[in-house]
Amino acid sequence: MTIVATGTDVSTAPPAGVPAGTPAAVSAGRGVGPLLRAWRERRRVSQLELASRADSSARHISFVETGRSRPSEEMVLRLAEHLEVPVRERNSLLLAAGYAPRYPETPLDDPALGALREGLERLIQGYEPYPALVVDAVYTVVAANRGITMLLDGVPESLLQPPLNAMRLTLHPEGMAPRIRNLGEWRGHLLAQMERQIALHRSEPLRALYEEVAAYPVPEAAGDEAEPGSSVPYFALPMRIEHEGRVLSFVSSISTFNTPMDVTVSELAIETFLPADPATAKYLRTLGD
């Protein structure tokens, strides 16, 4: 699979004239103060603690949150940094404070991101025969290698129509779920991961996806039994999946970009699957020969 472009979800598209990614509340004139207070409370940080981090005063933070003081552009960005506000939402804070958005949202197929696309392709292809893929903020698959294609064996064509979604492919009762031997554990891990992301990002599309996949029925064929005769000490929770009469075990790792300056880039994640036992590693090496 190759990298493809992804568009703005129409359910969250802003009104005309408002930059992509800007919540309707901001366009309606909601001030920056309430937004900053909401992020501070979400992070469970006191005004005094935030002031200390941002080299300010609790009094000034209070004035900003109540609208009695208009923060400078630099202060908005500094507070957003210390509150770990996602890049997309930092633009919203700037707009609410009366400043221009700082971070562009470049389409993935834009020539400006050509070097990035090529680098991601080389990265996941170089990881073969082990599986690797790239997803966006709502788990839309934008790139995947042949190792991922192997894991999708047996998935019906109806679920493989673009745009592919990694969570749907994994948890749908007609997707990979029936072949995951420890589905209960792996499903719990994925749902908890999404819950953490929802707490970090104010994303209605992500919440809608979570509610959809959490409601999928668990296939009767799925199980949670231990691997017969196995004494392998797993160092992280593995995904154990059936493939052509054998059980393969993988642990996953997720990577993101350091200090992204573009909304699109900030929301990309690279997930790689590492063999969790010698048998899986040996089998995958035979595929690469």
Rank of each mutant, 00 (worst) to 15 (best):
R40T: 04
H60M: 11
G67L: 08
I61T: 02
L50I: 12
G67P: 13
V64T: 12
V45N: 04
A54H: 10
A58Q: 13
S56P: 11
E41V: 09
S62Q: 14
L36M: 11
D55W: 02
A51T: 02
R37T: 03
S62E: 12
S57C: 02
S52I: 12
R42P: 01
R68C: 00
E41H: 13
S56R: 06
R44H: 14
W39A: 11
A38M: 10
A38T: 06
L50G: 05
D55A: 03
S57P: 03
A54V: 00
R68I: 00
G67N: 07
E65P: 01
R42F: 02
V45E: 04
S56E: 07
T66M: 06
S62M: 10
E65W: 12
L50T: 13
S56F: 09
S56L: 11
R59S: 09
R42C: 04
G67C: 01
S52T: 14
S46E: 01
S52Y: 08
A51S: 09
G67M: 07
R43K: 15
Q47V: 06
R43A: 15
A51I: 03
S57H: 10
R68L: 08
S56N: 12
E41F: 03
S56Y: 11
T66C: 04
S57V: 05
R42Y: 05
W39G: 08
S62D: 08
R37A: 09
G67E: 08
R44Q: 13
E41R: 14
H60K: 01
R40P: 00
R37F: 03
S62F: 09
S46Q: 06
D55M: 05
V45M: 15
R43P: 11
S57W: 15
R59G: 01
A38I: 07
R44L: 06
L36F: 05
S52D: 10
L36I: 14
G67F: 06
L50E: 09
A38C: 04
V64W: 03
W39I: 13
S52P: 00
R40M: 06
A38R: 10
S52N: 12
S62H: 14
S69F: 09
E49M: 09
L48N: 08
D55Y: 06
S69I: 00
R42V: 10
R40E: 01
A58L: 02
A51F: 10
S52F: 07
F63G: 02
L48Y: 11
V45P: 00
Q47D: 10
R59I: 00
R37K: 15
V64C: 05
I61P: 07
S46G: 14
S46F: 08
R53Y: 13
R37G: 03
I61H: 10
R59F: 00
R40C: 03
A54P: 00
R53I: 01
S46R: 14
E65D: 07
R59V: 01
R42M: 03
A58H: 05
I61G: 04
E41Q: 15
S69D: 12
S56K: 08
V45I: 15
S57M: 10
S57E: 13
R37I: 02
R59M: 04
R37M: 04
V64H: 09
V45K: 07
T66A: 06
A58M: 07
R40A: 05
A51Y: 09
A38W: 12
S46A: 08
S62G: 13
I61Y: 13
R59P: 04
E65C: 05
R59Q: 11
W39R: 15
L50Q: 05
R53H: 09
S57G: 08
I61N: 05
L50P: 14
Q47A: 15
